[in-house]
Design a protein around this nucleic acid. Structure first.
Lengths: 231, 231
DNA sequence: CCATGATAGATAGTGGCACTGTCCACTAGC
DNA sequence: GCTAGTGGACAGTGCCACTATCTATCATGG
């Protein structure tokens, strides 16, 4: 198909498609002439993904490019894909200043946290820098927040990751698996945080009504957390 | 103190402080003359918080204003504070278009999800719209993603919320409690997602090496992830 | 008293980013 | 041939988070 049909089917304006092509978010079509190129389903699919990442999720164009590059270049290796995809994501706020990422005064605390959780991750994992920076920010705010308080969060994060990996377990096609991994991790983030807030609201109301007792509300519905197998 | 000292102590340029004053992110000082005002510790504290929200977390100025307004206007009611603070946060991508938030074709699915989880939340909770939009995006991408797949995430979100609420349980001072709630929910978000990614990496490697078994690493050969003390 | 510097308030400007408009040479398809 | 469409290039737009500058005070030291 040509660019006008690509635009029609993806809902993205032609000029924006050209922009994405320039920026490397979309792979070029097969050129049939100096001013003619042929696009296919993969372009439609990828355009929709780009719009989801940039428009819905709010990723910057640069971050989206990195993420997509990671997915489509190593589609054969799910583990590698996971690492790259999620590494490039990090957060909207960490654009630039990649140099100081590696060195943070709180990195030892992060290592202690990972050790306490029993996790084995690569040294350069960007997530470590994010955690370090968060600890740093909390300290600057005067909050006495120790890395130990992140341990329960880490344990729950492990369960979330288990659900994530279960979600891509059965996919055979490498490309589809990579895309699914990307979608599950990146696009689900706002939903997860929204669920957290909804749960906070629910439990806050429940605790208010039932007294300041333990985390699980006494008789109340309290969130219906089923006892999933031990982490 | 005067504005120059406020600038020095908070690390925020004077011009930026004026900007925040204009935008309502910082409460005005006590005016002592047409061109003189007195600032105090509360301004220093709040400025640091603003910088954390806007700079580190990447919140828009408008969103930060809403969040802070919610915190400092109803400091007496923790439950109310939670609701407002977390409501205003939502996500960076949902600025504008607040009108269509209420009506989403997928809202019934979200209600079904909340029902399955046993949660009781207010109808206008912004988190619901975020979840609805995520389901919508996933559907547009052709992913066959049912709301039922969010149930395990919801259960884990409930546990996270329980940890969150535990973290603000014992605080007596209402203002401090409100601030802590804000910090725990908003500033911790990137860290939580980073932990999720780190856990994915760890477990992906573990599953790869040990087959499709449990999320915990088998023997954990303890590579270079030792908790080295401060350099 | 008055020079000096800081201050509040207002207005305009800056730089970055994600597009968007426009122009050109050329091609496809009638 | 003729018209609509195309790829490529480049400038322009709108938004946003600041930032610079200007003015009319005000505070203080000498």
């Amino acid at each position: 198909m040509r660019i006008s049909e690509l635009s029609r089917r993806s809902g993205v304006p032609i000029t924006t498609i050209k922009y994405y092509l320039r920026e490397g978010l979309l792979h070029a079509g097969r050129a049939t002439a100096p001013n003619q190129a042929e696009y296919d389903e993969s372009h439609v699919r990828r355009l929709r993904l780009v719009r989801a990442l940039v428009g819905v999720r709010g990723l910057s164009v640069g971050a989206a490019k990195e993420v997509l590059g990671g997915v489509y270049e190593r589609e054969g290796d799910p583990h590698r894909v996971l690492g790259l995809v999620l590494g490039a994501t990090a957060d909207a706020a960490d654009t630039g200043d990649a140099a100081e990422d590696a060195e943070s005064p709180r990195m030892p605390e992060v290592d202690a946290l990972l050790d306490a959780l029993g996790w084995q991750v690569s040294d350069g994992a960007p997530g470590k820098a994010v955690v370090a920076r968060t600890l740093d920010t909390l300290a600057e705010l005067g909050t006495d927040y120790d890395w130990k308080r992140l341990v329960p969060y880490g344990e729950l994060a492990a369960r979330i990751a288990a659900v994530d990996l279960d979600g891509i377990e059965g996919i055979r096609d490498p490309l589809e698996m990579a895309e699914r991994a990307l979608v599950l991790t990146v696009l689900l983030e706002p939903a997860l945080m929204a669920l957290r807030r909804l749960a906070q609201e629910h439990q806050s109301a429940a605790r208010r009504g039932a007294g300041p007792e333990g985390p699980d509300a006494p008789g109340a519905p309290a969130g219906g957390v089923s006892p999933s197998p031990a982490p």
